[in-house]
């Protein structure tokens, strides 16, 4: 059971690929392959993408067009914009620089 999300997928689905497993913050999610990662995470019920390095405030996607950098996530040690990534199976996604003290 996925958690209740403030967002709903229409019947036409997100980009309607087959579901593939990814992990977010240690949790496994089944997301549509090829979908926009930020949209797919929102639809899957992820509400906080990161905490700011300044005050620790929670943040989630704001612009969905690569301009605001609030949807930053960490994949393979690199901090990237979730709204500029497409879902592929096996993505290991973490909140940026959280609970580990090494960018490598």
């Amino acid at each position: 059971m996925k958690p209740v999300s403030p967002f709903l997928e229409t019947e036409s689905g997100t980009e309607a690929g087959p579901r593939v497993p990814v992990s977010f913050d240690g949790r496994t999610l089944e997301l549509p392959e090829g979908a926009n990662l930020a949209a797919a995470l929102l639809a899957a019920g992820v509400q906080v993408f990161r905490r700011t390095p300044v005050s620790g405030a929670p943040r989630a996607p704001y612009c969905m067009m690569g301009a605001c950098f609030d949807c930053l996530v960490e994949i393979d040690g690199v901090v990237r914009q979730a709204c500029m990534i497409e879902v592929t199976g096996g993505l290991a996604i973490r909140r940026p620089h959280e609970a580990h003290d090494d960018p490598a």
Partner: peptide, 25 residues
């Protein structure tokens, strides 16, 4: 305006156009 759940209207449109994702409330 920095809280999760606050987005631009353009973002709302992009969610719908590209991903077919809609905000419930």
């Amino acid at each position: 305006w920095t809280l999760p759940g606050v987005m631009t209207a353009g973002a709302g449109q992009i969610l719908l156009k590209q991903s077919g994702v809609l905000a419930r409330r």
